[in-house]
């Protein structure tokens, strides 16, 4: 068995891995923005809800998040009359990872928003800009710039965490490699896992490259 053949088998898992990465990131971002908004509100109930959620998610291993989503959610939802037996394993994978990463992203958004220089809002008010305009035109773009390094770290972390979906029996990069190793009675085990590691690393390099492009594009803006 040569290296090209091993890589060929491993890369069969790439579509699933990328699907999990992209969709989980999108949903975790949406949920994270909502949580950050709840947490930044003056309303104590809203903040309480956000805090409990953040604490719970941050205090639980992502592997467990996936297992709970896969085994627990159908039972829970059946109790209130919703049937999700039709969901694919991939959907459960996205669900578990989105929940897990929403909390971390929410903290990145919240802290970035609070780091925007308060003088920016004052300057906008002093020339009579409506707060809503200031929020979208000034505060959010600057908060995004501040949050970018954290978001990059979280995307890389999420990418690596997609390997956990093997517990649901999903075939991603990691599970393809692991499966191949088992099928060949472990003879090529070391080579397979080294190639797998290199595959993950190359994709992380690509992610880093994308973020570098964004950073360079906005290099003149130092928020």
């Amino acid at each position: 068995m040569n290296n090209a053949k091993i890589l060929g088998v491993i890369l069969r898992g790439l579509p699933n891995t990328l699907y999990l990465l992209v969709l989980s990131f999108v949903f975790a971002t949406i949920l994270g923005i909502f949580l950050a908004w709840l947490d930044l509100r003056q309303n104590r109930v809203a903040r309480g809800v956000a805090h409990v959620y953040l604490g719970l998610i941050r205090g639980t291993p992502p592997l467990l998040m996936l297992l709970l989503a896969y085994y627990g959610l159908p039972v829970l939802l059946k109790g209130i009359g919703i049937n999700i037996d039709g969901w694919t394993k991939l959907t459960f994978g996205v669900f578990g990872l989105s929940l897990g990463w929403s909390a971390y992203l929410s903290e990145a958004f919240r802290s970035a928003y609070l780091s925007v220089d308060p003088g920016q809002l004052e300057a906008a008010r002093s020339i009579g800009l409506p707060d809503r305009t200031t929020f979208w035109q000034i505060l959010i773009p600057q908060a995004t710039m501040i949050a970018l390094p954290n978001i990059e770290n979280l995307v890389i972390g999420l990418f690596k965490a997609t390997s956990l979906v093997y517990v649901l029996g999903l075939y991603d990069l990691y599970n393809e490699a692991s499966n191949l190793s088992n099928q060949t009675a472990g003879i090529h085990q070391l080579r397979i896992f080294i190639l797998l590691a290199l595959t993950y690393w190359v994709i992380v390099l690509i992610i880093e490259g994308l973020f570098r492009l964004i950073r360079n594009r906005f290099a003149a803006i130092r928020a």
Partner: peptide
């Protein structure tokens, strides 16, 4: 309050230009 702000303007010690503009 908004009327006053629209008919006055302020210049700040640390400039406070919009950094993303």
């Amino acid at each position: 309050g908004q009327w006053v702000r629209r008919h006055s303007a302020m210049v700040f010690q640390n400039y406070s230009l919009f950094k993303n503009k």
